Simulated assay, not measured.
Amino acid sequence: MTTSADPRPASRASRRPATRRIADAPVLRVTVVYLIVAAAAGALAGVIWHLASSLPSYTIGTDGSASISERGLTSVFSADAVYSLIGVLLGAGLGLLAWRWYSRRGAWVVALAGAGALLSALACWWVGTLLGPDSFPTRVSSAKAGDTVQIDLALHTWTPVMVWALAALLPVLVISLIRWDAPSRSD
């Protein structure tokens, strides 16, 4: 008995290569991979934050007092500005990655983009403070007259951490607004 070949063209699914896209993987596995990528990127950003921050120094006087110039006072918050700038760039990248991996999963893309950015921001903060100078009160108390003591690498407010999350949510918002009525693609 002979069978004839099926005259219908191969379906799109059967023409798809055997490799699976990461967006088609199980949700838990993709989420773990995304959060690991976010934490690793945040740790690398912490090194960059440490290297890019210009921290002012206090000068120890003969009477044991510590003084800082007016310019030094204004640069106290430069570490926050550098951290925020890194957060805007990395947060937007994490938002785009979250959209790429989770856009078919609905509202999860918003939660995961924000969570990944916050995890990345905290990893950056932790690594940066580990690498940067710390124990400022101890260093000042042990300094001699004429010594300069650099301030700690630290954030002075929580606002820069929130910048990371907002930067991650911005591409998700923009892309979802542009594509809200676009037909779903199955590629």
Rank of each mutant, 00 (worst) to 15 (best):
Q150H: 04
V88W: 09
L130F: 10
S142H: 08
D6M: 00
L89Y: 07
W164C: 04
I22D: 01
L94V: 02
A5G: 13
T157E: 05
I22M: 11
P160K: 03
A40L: 07
L130A: 15
V32N: 08
M162V: 12
I36K: 07
G72S: 03
A121Q: 08
R29A: 13
S184F: 14
W49D: 09
A43H: 00
F136Q: 09
T31D: 05
G64M: 01
L119N: 05
T19S: 14
S184E: 14
I22Q: 08
L170R: 01
V110N: 02
R29C: 04
V76F: 09
P160S: 03
G128T: 05
R21M: 07
L119I: 14
V76T: 10
L118I: 13
R71V: 14
W99K: 11
R21N: 10
V33D: 00
G93M: 07
E70Y: 10
A66L: 00
T129H: 01
P133A: 10
A18G: 11
S186T: 15
G116D: 06
S141L: 13
C124E: 06
L173F: 07
V149I: 01
G106N: 00
A143T: 03
S14W: 05
A154G: 04
C124D: 06
A66R: 05
D24R: 05
A107R: 09
T62V: 15
A79W: 03
I175H: 08
A39Q: 03
G114A: 12
S186H: 12
T59G: 11
D147C: 03
S54I: 14
S184M: 14
A23Q: 12
L118W: 08
L166R: 02
